[in-house]
Design a protein around this nucleic acid. Structure first.
Lengths: 206, 206
DNA sequence: CCTACCGATCGGTAGG
DNA sequence: CCTACCGATCGGTAGG
């Protein structure tokens, strides 16, 4: 892709790539502009030809590396004649998409810890319409599901699998083999079992 | 409690308290030893009479403020004749315990982002035996539950409610009212519905 | 895009 | 053993 870039654009890209590597390895305050410059192959002052501040570099890294395009694409690609196959397809592809970008979790944690989530509202407002759209898919299977608001169902789905992803990424190496084995499949199974109405008496209190 | 402390112990406590406040507000690298000293009411050099380094201060803060004692106490206090009342009791008290210590999430994120989870194995190995013990409670309700390994069930439980806690803490202010309302109760309900065997044909693939 | 410099501040240390 | 300073210095920082 770099063949089509002007020299200026190429330098900008190298700054973002270098900064990304350093941020996920050392955090934001733990990384200096001099390190970024050196790693990008330019002088310190050269960064300020492309970015107005260190924070500006971080925002560019956030935008360049967040994988929600791919996660949402995974939702679009997902298919299934039944709610079961749909949920399994989405979950599998979401986890696969997140696993392809283990650095993103790190980036978001930096955003939370060192920026107090300052830039999150922007990211979330981009995401929310698609999030609501996802809820509509649940609504289309309404007759097979228990009476739970779609947005709650969507949040529970995202939360459950995001928590799977986070616990897998963070403490996966310490989790006993018994626990890791088929854990995602069990997570999917528990979620489905939790939302699908199997025709017996509705026991939800809500 | 401070009435029983020697002057040296009191100073040490004030350093830890000051450092805690600053770390959760600014991160580790975003906080200077001078800020900690000023906030603790002593000179910079005085910190080094109690701690050998800035990292040493952070470890002391981590140990002093992690609330797993209280979370595990919440589990001990939880009771219920049925799996439903037990899960509801534990979930409610865990969320309440975590909500009483919103700073702990921040501390753990600093540990992850800025220390690459270096100190986590120690914390987790303290926790794991109690974690397994919790799984045994599920085992005691075995005849009412689907055939899912206890540790998977425990991880799903912890993951689901930890994800509720995290999403609530991080983006709670941006979640539509419809979504927040009774969300915890719905989470509990979904989990219970997902693990309890209601006597019909077992549909789990596992 | 580089050189070179600024005011300031970083964690940590010295001896008194 | 502790508190509270001193002058000096470390590698590294934002920003012009």
């Amino acid at each position: 892709m770099s063949a089509e870039l002007t020299r200026g654009e190429n330098t900008q890209l190298e700054i973002v790539q270098a900064a990304h590597q350093l941020f996920i390895g050392q955090g934001y305050h733990g990384t200096s502009m001099r390190q970024i410059a050196r790693s990008a192959g330019i002088a310190l002052g050269g960064i300020y030809n492309h970015f107005s501040s260190k924070e500006d570099v971080f925002v560019a890294v956030l935008k360049a590396y967040h994988p929600y395009h791919e996660i949402l694409a995974a939702i679009d690609v997902a298919h299934g004649d039944t709610i079961e196959s749909f949920v399994e397809s989405v979950a599998t592809q979401m986890v696969a998409a997140l696993r392809k970008h283990p650095e993103f979790l790190n980036l978001m944690l930096i955003e939370i810890v060192e920026f107090k989530s300052q830039h999150v509202p922007t990211l979330f407002s981009d995401l929310f319409p698609r999030f609501a759209e996802f809820g509509n898919v649940f609504a289309s299977y309404q007759d097979r599901l228990r009476h739970i608001p779609e947005l709650i169902m969507t949040r529970a789905f995202v939360g459950l699998f995001f928590s799977f992803y986070i616990t897998d990424a963070l403490i996966g190496s310490q989790i006993p083999a018994q626990m890791k084995e088929k854990a995602l499949e069990h997570f999917i199974d528990i979620f489905l079992y939790g939302i699908v109405n199997r025709g017996q008496v509705e026991t939800s209190k809500f």
